[in-house]
Amino acid sequence: MHVLYLIFVDPFMQMVHSPDLLMQTLWDGLVGGVLYALIALGFVLIFKASGVFNFAQGIMVVFAALTLVGLHEHGVPAFVALGLTVLVMLVLAFGVERLMLRPLVNQSEIILFMATFGLTYFLIGFGQLVFGGNPKVMIAQDLYLPSGAIEWKGHFGFVSFQKIDIAAVIIASIMVAVLAVFFQRTRIGRALRAVADSHQAALSVGISLEQIWVIVWFAAGVVALTTGIMWGARSEVSFSLQVIALKALPVLILGGFTSIPGAIVGGLIIGIGEKLGEFYWGPLLGGGIENWLAYVIALGFLIFRPQGLFGEKIIERI
């Protein structure tokens, strides 16, 4: 009976008695969710263009952030370093297209997936060779990202809004919106969808496969850079940051691998869901449940929508 009380009554009593903690949890969940959405978007863009789950997205986050901080450490001014990093991500996109994707046109998806494993190990090794394995401090101040917090105090308690989190939400939201519009409403977006449906059909109507791949890998690179800056500012820039990208997996399961709105909604559901779950129900299981709770939430949705919230329903006749 007591267990039932702890599961079904106590968490809601806590929410009523301490609304400040509830609001704080929702805010932190929102911030986490937006950042998850951003990471998931990197995966979705590449999956839509080539049907490949890009295993290298996590290391791209680290590589982009390391490049930015590494260039700055060598005396390059912050915004010049930012521009140069964008350029490096463009060169990476060209390199991936020319050296990895082009030779593998019309190969099965699993071959392309394995190629992204290779890319991951290449970027890990190359990154360590060039920048070393030491953790680095993100140059948030040099990029004029705000620090400190705004506290909202009232009779209910207080809610703390970190300025860097507010900036992260705004920047990530703008980025998600721009990318969504770009890939949904422009010619390139339509070409991208055509490529996703069939490489050969897209080629036959004059769509340049190479160009589309460079564009999506570059967009994924910029997304990785943004994620790296935001997450690096909350902690540090180190190779352990690549694990954060795995948080996008339940988001993708939930939102669908091909849907940009799915990545956004999925990110928010996972972000807020895992924070509420960890905070109110986690202590019942000894804490630290956030790691797997995201997958449980995603699986819960899958029972009702196997293709994900916004994923395409694929019917294959055999």
Binding site: T25, D28, S240, L241, K275, E278, G287
Partner: peptide
Amino acid sequence: QNQTSLWLD
């Protein structure tokens, strides 16, 4: 690098 929930606890 994702400890927000823990520190809310």
